[in-house]
């Protein structure tokens, strides 16, 4: 299946970011909610489906299974994709700030 990684959906971006450290599904849910101060609350079905998609694309991999919970971690390829995405967002932020600051002066 063809995947286009950029631009990435908010869900995939948050999950990928969260998996810089090893986490299980519910751990990701809580972490993303903490990071976004409760703005993004990922549903269980959405997490499960997106983890499968990211694993298929080899951006994350399962690291262990403990007490019926699968733990995942970002792969090297996932790290590259995340950096590309981060740079894209940074550029958008930067040009946005430039234009708006000029406007105000």
């Amino acid at each position: 299946m063809e995947h286009s990684f950029s631009p990435m959906s908010e869900t995939s971006y948050c999950i990928l970011l969260s998996l810089v450290e090893e986490r299980h599904g519910y751990g990701i849910m809580q972490h993303v909610s903490d990071l976004t101060k409760g703005r993004i609350n990922l549903g269980a079905g959405t997490i499960y489906g997106t983890l499968a998609k990211l694993e298929n694309a080899k951006l994350i991999s399962m690291s262990k299974e403990e007490e019926k919970r699968k733990y995942y971690k970002i792969t090297e390829q996932g790290m590259q994709v995340l950096n590309v995405e981060l740079n894209r967002i940074a550029e958008l932020y930067q040009i946005g700030e430039e234009v708006l600051l000029n406007e105000r002066e």
Partner: peptide, 9 residues
């Protein structure tokens, strides 16, 4: 783990 995830949530 599917069922565990939903229970956890």
């Amino acid at each position: 783990d599917y069922h565990q995830l939903f229970r956890d949530a």
